[in-house]
Design a protein around this nucleic acid. Sequence first.
DNA 1: AATAGTATTGCAAATGTTTTCATAAATTCG
DNA 2: CGAATTTATGAAAACATTTGCAATACTATT
Lengths: 343, 343
Amino acid sequence: MSNFQKGKVDIVAVAKAAKVSPSTVSRTFNHPNLVSPATRKKINRAVQRLGYIRNRAAQTMHGKRSGTIGLVVPTINHAIFAEVIQAFSDSIDKAGFSLLLASHGYDLDREYAMVRKFLEHRVDGVALVGLEHSDATARLIEQQKIPALAIWNYSEDSILPCVGADNRLAGRLATEHLLALGHRDIGLIFPQTNGNDRAQHRISAVHAALNEMGISVPSEHESEAPYSVSQAKQAALTLLAKHSRPTALLCGNDVIAQGALFAAQSLGLKVPDDLSIIGIGDFKGSADVEPGLTTIRIPAETIGKLAGERFTDYITSDDPKPFRICCEVERIVRGTTSPSTVH
Amino acid sequence: MSNFQKGKVDIVAVAKAAKVSPSTVSRTFNHPNLVSPATRKKINRAVQRLGYIRNRAAQTMHGKRSGTIGLVVPTINHAIFAEVIQAFSDSIDKAGFSLLLASHGYDLDREYAMVRKFLEHRVDGVALVGLEHSDATARLIEQQKIPALAIWNYSEDSILPCVGADNRLAGRLATEHLLALGHRDIGLIFPQTNGNDRAQHRISAVHAALNEMGISVPSEHESEAPYSVSQAKQAALTLLAKHSRPTALLCGNDVIAQGALFAAQSLGLKVPDDLSIIGIGDFKGSADVEPGLTTIRIPAETIGKLAGERFTDYITSDDPKPFRICCEVERIVRGTTSPSTVH
DNA sequence: AATAGTATTGCAAATGTTTTCATAAATTCG
DNA sequence: CGAATTTATGAAAACATTTGCAATACTATT
């Protein structure tokens, strides 16, 4: 009970307390099999007594991994990203890594800044959302040779390793579902596609699928809404107030779809009888609204989990092989869609 | 165009390229006013050319701050925590800090483990959710003299500095609102209170307020639900199916309240005419359900923002003064509550 | 009992910075 | 113009580790 409070407890304080050399203490942590059980016990006791905590900063300086992975998301405060962050965090935690998290608010220049910041912290890898990033970001990753991962989106020609879903397919499936139900007059509410390749892929697939059927969407039936139930509700209200109302609404994500649902309800429209609504995402809660939301499920949790597992493998492997993983999207039919009654 | 790729670019590589000493390079970053504009320019050019990125691990070893703050939350994947994380992240980012994030899943032993992990990374401070933590965690914080902050909850006798709301008051306000509307037969759906002092404070205040009116809640009108719309919906369905149905439902948070709302709707009950529902939290989306959810607003964003600002101040101050900040809760009356029709 | 081999430990160099101190150059002032 | 400041730079020590190498102590083998 002597040197508890006095000064820093570093590895040499522990060494002194255990009457061994600092090297031995270090070895006890890093190569326990190289030190005799007896000394190991002495050292552990000293560690306990002094409350020593290893200093990863010092380790990192030796070329050891920092044990951190940086994740940059557009925003944390979305059902869907929260889910993927949670799964990713849990997953890398299992592999002994800590999560550095930042958001860029759909601004790719801020994304760059965040990646840089993470690089200063010497993260062992950086994960980004989506496949579209600024040239500066791409250069930075290339130049610094930092392991990087794109999550959320899948594309067979992605430059970075990726774990995600095919958003084009999601858009197509949603469209085909409505078409199969006989809808020909389809309204579209999507988020801005600027710097958001997920939305961009989805909407272009929707248009493609409609074109194949010779359907085009009149511009007054196409609307843009930010990611927020209330603003989506507003947008839907405006769209639905138009003289010629579509028989179905295809929404860029489930948050927008929920907004649309509430808008329809507050206009006294019966969903799905008067109006069908389909979303994309299958967020937590989409199953629980009344009626349950029909949607194309993007398996956020699976993506996050898988991304974490594969990325940590990749990082810790001596000869890392790039990978691209496509997680299946799936049509989930619930209560907000029904056959068109117009013939 | 010589030493681009060959080997590490560290401060001495930059120094060499700019034909100055490493000290001068370091100074250019840390005390730019101490180095002449001319050399500064030379150095900056070299930095650009080589793509040098500062190494915070090495800085940290010098007793400089690591520039990271650890935040441990029960779970990331909740509307309410996502909101507070976002605000906190943005706020500390402005002050130049990076966020290390971890979740413990309402397990205080895991919380301890996460704090330890953060300590290894030499975070400059650690923020926890709530005021209830394991003894080990408290000891660790005390012993390591690491700046710590409790967010989300306010209490005047909190040991740690705190930024949060008075959850007891929230519980009381919710109760008083229902009582004022004439409800005497009130059902309760709350999350588990184990290791969750927020819920614990709320429910005890509810019971206290009811007691003062001589009201007690029959056990079949009191139910426990985890944090999930669907499971809350289930719990509410069971509760509402009882022969004697309460006239109002007081829910431990807005997610549960939403579940209750959907349950009521699927049972064909008119809200608020047949059943009043009040939540606590005012989550994103609570305003947008139909009818809008009456709730007690806990200003998550304000809490996160304020917490970030005050905590970074605290950390960077030479003589930090402890603080406790109470953010106001507020009754938000929307469409899910109305006067009791039973007399 | 001597030798070879193995298990255990310590020494010292290295990692990438920052900072104190010292020195040199430039500027001011009487 | 020389002394006194001030400004700009460099050398070297310090920070907390890890690890290659060397030294020592132990075991097993003949």
